[in-house]
Amino acid sequence: MEEKEARRIMETYADMILRISYSYFRQTYDAEDICQNVLLKYLSSHQRFDSQEHEKAWIIRTTINACKDLRKSAFFTRTIGLDAMPERAVPSEPVSVLSDEIKKLPANYRISIHLFYYEGYTIKEIAQILEKKETVVANYLSRGRKRLKESLTKSDKNFLTKAGEAI
């Protein structure tokens, strides 16, 4: 039974955990470590959930907390990244100008936008998950969208300028 539950959790949440943790660290190996830790914590906690949404919110909150804990840890603050290592791809995230621009946003904007647009959470739900006020989350979304609009408009102008020079 436990193996069946482990498979279900892996298939259901592993990609989401990897994407959220990748948005914090921008390194696949750290995201994989966080994913493993969150899945092990879930399996060892034997926690019961009221619904699928409650379970998903617990997974997201645990992932965010694990990312924050790792960022604060002595290991993370006193080591140097393995930039020489080739980076493995993050699972099935479409490559686009938009996703590239989202990755450039500050962490609070990135996480809020990811949860709102990719995971389908409301501002109220995101506020609960991030343990922030709804107005703060609304500001994150608003400011994140504004920055995305500015950067996408800028990149469109750069593209048109380069295209004009090529002709």
Rank of each mutant, 00 (worst) to 15 (best):
K4D: 05
K133G: 12
S99T: 15
L40H: 06
S112C: 02
I123E: 05
I9E: 10
I34A: 08
S96H: 07
G81V: 10
F75N: 08
N158A: 15
E5S: 11
R7W: 09
R71Q: 15
R147S: 04
S21M: 03
W58H: 03
E165T: 11
L98E: 12
I111N: 00
T161L: 15
C35F: 05
E165V: 11
A127K: 10
V97C: 12
R61L: 04
K104N: 11
M10Q: 11
D100C: 05
S44L: 07
T62Y: 02
S142Q: 12
S23H: 08
I167M: 07
E119I: 03
A107R: 04
I59W: 00
H54Y: 10
L105W: 01
N108K: 10
I60E: 00
K157T: 14
Y24R: 03
E131S: 12
T28Q: 09
I80P: 01
L130D: 05
H114K: 07
E53Y: 08
S23Y: 09
N65L: 10
S73W: 03
D15W: 03
R110P: 00
I64R: 00
R71F: 14
L40F: 07
E55A: 04
L39N: 05
R110S: 05
P86Q: 14
G144V: 01
L70T: 06
Y22D: 02
W58E: 02
L40D: 09
I123R: 05
Y140S: 01
Y24E: 02
D100K: 02
K149V: 08
I167Y: 05
E131N: 13
S155F: 02
D33K: 00
S73T: 14
A74N: 12
K68L: 13
I113M: 02
M1A: 14
H114F: 15
V97L: 15
S151I: 11
E87N: 07
